[in-house]
């Protein structure tokens, strides 16, 4: 099997690897970087569990080959708030019961962190409908989404002040 030299930076750690072109980014992050916060839920781009940031943008690591990410900066859920999960959205997920089994949770967080940041920067509290639309690419089977919507509302509301 031909290997392709690929340099990846994951959560600040840069490594140059010989990678088979067919290896999924999700698998390479998990195996080569020993990072467990990337979960594979469907491996066909439908559930959002494997969402990571590539150069700051949420992407599905099960639909991305590692070799496509040569030179890119990749962030996983581990980068948000460390082992104490101190990111404002992580804390809101906890207080609003936005997770149960936790398997889809890293994907939701990585999808929604930029959304929260954009709304905070604009100083706007979006409608629940808008929040639900923002997570329409992620499937959660445990919570019924109720707590996740509440967590996003809280994370934005608390930061822009006067939030409900």
């Amino acid at each position: 099997m031909t290997m392709t030299e690929t340099t990846l930076t994951v959560n600040g750690q840069t490594r140059t690897l010989d990678v088979e072109p067919r290896r999924l980014l999700a698998d390479v992050i998990r195996q080569e970087f020993d990072i467990a916060g990337v979960h594979i839920g469907c491996a066909h781009g439908a559930c959002g569990c494997c969402t990571v940031h590539i150069d700051g943008t949420p992407r599905l690591s099960c639909l991305t080959f590692a070799v496509q990410c040569d030179g890119r900066d990749i962030k996983t859920v581990e980068s948000l708030g460390g082992f104490d999960a101190t990111h404002v959205l992580q804390l809101a997920f906890k207080s609003e019961h936005g997770l149960q089994c936790g398997y889809c949770t890293p994907g939701f967080l990585m999808t929604l962190v930029p959304y929260v940041e954009e709304n905070v920067a604009r100083g706007t509290l979006p409608s629940d409908e808008d929040i639900r639309e923002a997570m329409s690419g992620n499937i959660c089977r445990c919570t019924g989404y109720h707590g996740i919507v509440a967590a996003v509302r809280k994370a934005i509301g608390d930061q822009i002040g006067g939030g409900q």
Partner: peptide, 15 residues
């Protein structure tokens, strides 16, 4: 609030 959440939110959970 759930004690298990910190592990599940941070990526420290092990499936």
């Amino acid at each position: 609030q759930r004690f298990e959440d910190t592990r599940l939110l941070s990526g420290a959970a092990r499936y």
